[in-house]
């Protein structure tokens, strides 16, 4: 399934290392939490990477689903009662898919710059709706007082309040997410997704309804984006409108481009490096955005196909 050498290398280094990380950090709560957030963000960025890099659908409103994942949980779950994690995961995925179907039906009628604008507009609408609403805490957002329990078939595998447990849940989710997207890309469905991206005109002429394939991809990516938002909400125990802001969409897009558009594993790479730089510069200077911005521009210019592309070219040379 993983045919690319750089991809294989990355996966064999990243996942075992990530598996050992909580032990290496001696269960230091701060860092384990921080890394779990990066894993969650990687899921979000990967879903965006699939849309932008694999389907050619550039959206600036992917945060709509990230926020939706969080807010859906707050809306659905009773305030002072532990609900089942797995059942609510299903709810979030199902409802986000329905919302994505409707949103996709509208936004996919446009393309290019128009699609960027309309996705941005819809996400901003959602942002202002939640930041002005009194039921959902307005700008401050909502607290989640009780975290879900994870009983399944009488087994209690995880305790979501335990940072290390939560970290492993995120890692497992990320791994499954990557496997799922790889599965899609090597399937018969993936063949047409590739075809649609490379030459939509030809694909239509061969008798495929391009719109259906784009819509299906949009729903898949949006549902996984919502799942990431749901995990994020559970990790910190609150949701607020900033999850829906255009900065969230924009940052994810930068991470995805930095990692190498369309490579999927590059999404993890991009998120790691971005967050790593963020952490480093934040501790160096108060005005961390400036040097970091410059560095990212330089990196994007230097690595034409992102960090993943650079890794691939390195391996190519050594061959």
């Amino acid at each position: 399934m993983f045919t690319n050498r750089a991809e294989k290398l990355f996966i064999w280094v990243f996942f075992p290392l990530a598996l050992l990380m909580p032990l290496l950090l001696d269960q230091n709560t701060y860092y384990v939490n921080k890394l779990a957030t990066i894993l969650i963000l990687s899921i979000f960025v990967m879903s965006l990477d699939y849309l932008v890099g694999r389907c050619g659908l550039v959206t600036l409103g992917h945060a709509l689903f990230y926020g939706l994942g969080g807010y859906l949980f707050v809306m659905l779950a009773p305030e002072y009662e532990a609900v089942n994690f797995w059942i609510y995961t299903f709810y979030v995925l199902a409802i986000a898919s329905v919302v994505a179907l409707i949103v996709g039906f509208i936004v996919l009628r446009t393309s290019g710059i128009y699609m960027i604008m309309i996705t941005l507009a819809l996400a901003q609408m959602c942002f202002y709706f939640f930041s002005d609403s009194t039921e959902f805490g307005g700008n401050d957002g909502v607290f989640i007082y009780v975290k879900p329990e994870t009983h399944v078939f009488g087994l209690n595998l995880f305790d979501l309040d335990n940072p290390t447990h939560f970290y492993y849940l995120c890692l497992l989710s990320l791994f499954n997410c990557l496997l799922f997207f790889k599965l899609i890309m090597r399937s018969k469905f993936g063949r047409i997704v590739d075809a649609v991206q490379e030459n939509p005109e030809r694909t239509t002429a061969l008798g495929y309804n391009v719109f259906h394939f784009r819509l299906a991809s949009y729903v898949i990516a949006s549902a996984l984006g919502a799942y990431a938002g749901y995990l994020f909400a559970l990790q910190y125990g609150f949701v607020n409108p900033s999850m829906l802001s255009w900065q969230t969409s924009g940052t994810a897009l930068v991470m995805s481009i930095l990692g190498g558009l369309g490579t999927l594993y590059g999404a993890i790479l991009g998120t790691l490096v971005y967050e790593g730089l963020h952490y480093g510069f934040e501790h160096l200077t108060e005005n961390w955005l400036l040097p970091m911005g410059v560095l990212i521009i330089l990196m994007v210019l230097a690595f034409r196909h992102g960090l993943a592309g650079y890794l691939e070219s390195l391996l190519e040379k050594r061959k």
């Binding site: 090597r186 399937s187 018969k188 993936g190 063949r191 047409i192 075809a195 694909t203 495929y208």
Partner: peptide, 21 residues
């Protein structure tokens, strides 16, 4: 293959490998 798959069908199948048939 892209063209032939239109006739064979299963283009929404995400589990079947594209090289399996």
């Amino acid at each position: 293959s892209i063209a032939a798959q239109r006739r064979v069908g299963g283009s929404f199948n995400i589990f079947r490998s594209r090289h399996s048939e």
